[in-house]
Amino acid sequence: MKKITEICRLPGENVFRETQVILTGKRQAVIENYKNISAYTGERIELLTVSGRLLICGKKLEIVNYTKLEICIRGRIEGITLEEGRKK
């Protein structure tokens, strides 16, 4: 059985370490490959990622589901910012 990385011709493990944000309009965001939740209010959710901090701002934000690999946020999403961490 071939690995999915071989079938899709992806560059391997590095692809799966990057944080991915999938937006559905302004109402839902699914973030894959985050490290942890560092802050959570109805107006701001802050996630730590391999790349740095991911900030989601809006109104009536709520975390509806999360696992070790992904988190689903719903509400009125008004902005998403990635603040890169220090480069070594």
Rank of each mutant, 00 (worst) to 15 (best):
M1R: 14
K2G: 09
K2F: 12
K2A: 14
K3E: 06
K3A: 07
K3Q: 07
I4E: 07
T5I: 08
T5Y: 09
E6L: 05
I7K: 12
I7Q: 11
I7M: 13
I7D: 07
C8T: 02
R9I: 07
L10C: 07
P11G: 05
P11Q: 06
E13T: 08
E13L: 11
F16G: 06
F16Y: 15
F16D: 10
E18H: 14
E18T: 13
Q20M: 14
Q20Y: 14
V21Q: 11
I22E: 15
I22C: 14
L23E: 12
L23R: 09
G25N: 10
K26Y: 07
K26T: 11
K26R: 12
R27L: 08
Q28G: 05
Q28P: 01
A29L: 09
V30Y: 02
V30E: 10
I31D: 01
I31S: 01
I31C: 03
N33Q: 11
N33K: 06
N33A: 10
Y34L: 03
Y34W: 04
K35V: 06
N36K: 14
N36F: 06
I37P: 00
I37Y: 03
I37K: 03
S38G: 05
S38D: 11
S38M: 07
A39H: 05
A39C: 08
T41A: 08
G42V: 07
E43V: 05
R44T: 13
R44E: 15
I45K: 01
E46K: 05
E46W: 01
E46F: 05
E46R: 04
L47P: 02
L48G: 10
T49P: 04
V50G: 09
S51M: 11
G52H: 06
L54E: 00
L55P: 01
L55G: 00
I56F: 04
I56Q: 00
C57T: 13
C57K: 02
G58N: 04
K59I: 04
K59N: 11
K60S: 14
K60Q: 15
K60M: 10
E62Q: 13
I63F: 05
I63D: 03
N65F: 14
Y66V: 03
Y66C: 04
K68D: 10
L69R: 15
E70I: 06
E70R: 09
E70P: 02
E70Y: 11
I71G: 00
I71F: 02
I73K: 01
I73S: 00
R74A: 03
R74C: 08
G75F: 01
G75I: 00
R76D: 07
R76P: 01
I77W: 00
E78M: 03
G79E: 10
L82F: 07
L82H: 05
E83R: 11
E83A: 13
E84K: 15
E84Q: 14
G85I: 09
R86Q: 09
K87A: 08
K87D: 12
